[in-house]
């Protein structure tokens, strides 16, 4: 069972940022539950977790990062998309910087990884991201000076600052089949 976590303050945003992810999970034949960021969730019931993104002006989830602390002890795989990337970055004590990026930009792969093999173009919609990481994270891909994909060392936790559901569905599919 896959857990899809919404970081959206408003239901209307879930149509844009959560439903497309849930549809990819469904199309790959996996069962899933969607839960909201402010709920207490028994994450050990799930084999994989995807933490979705939200609207550019939505930061309410940052008031609930404490709800995600159980993730640090989670044995399964995690994919953090945009807001989910930011939550993972903060859980592993990295400082986000203000980097506003809206639109399609080229992504350069800097380390071999199971989610994406080649340079690609991706759709970005965020206000915060990472330019540098501490020893807990490994950069996987860059967009200009931004670390747009990272892996948490010794864990199968991945952060993606762009929205793979738009132009790079293979990232989500590869994650589901890890």
């Amino acid at each position: 069972m896959i857990l899809v976590i919404s970081t959206c303050k408003y239901s209307l945003s879930e149509e844009e940022f959560v439903r497309p992810i849930a549809e990819i999970v469904r199309d790959c034949g996996f069962d899933y539950h969607v839960r909201r960021y402010y709920e207490r969730i028994k994450i050990e019931d799930y084999s994989k977790i995807i933490v979705c993104g939200t609207a550019l002006r939505d930061f309410d989830y940052l008031n609930h990062v404490d709800k995600f602390t159980d993730l640090t002890d989670y044995d399964g795989e995690v994919l953090g998309i945009c807001a989910g990337y930011q939550i993972l970055a903060r859980l592993f004590l990295n400082a986000l910087e203000e980097i506003k990026k809206i639109g399609v930009y080229k992504v350069r792969i800097v380390r071999e990884n199971p989610l994406i093999k080649r340079e690609t173009r991706a759709y970005f919609l965020h206000r915060y991201a990472l330019r540098s990481v501490n020893e807990k994270l490994t950069p996987l891909a860059m967009q200009d000076e931004e670390i747009c994909m990272f892996k948490v060392k010794d864990r199968d936790f991945y952060g993606v600052s762009f929205h793979p559901e738009v132009l790079n569905r293979e990232i989500i599919v590869n994650f589901l089949y890890l």
């Binding site: 408003y10 209307l12 945003s13 149509e15 844009e16 497309p20 550019l56 002006r57 939505d58 809206i102």
Partner: peptide
Amino acid sequence: KICDNLELWCFNPLWL
């Protein structure tokens, strides 16, 4: 981009 410049939320409920 326009919504961001005007400090407006942007919702696209049919997206994808």
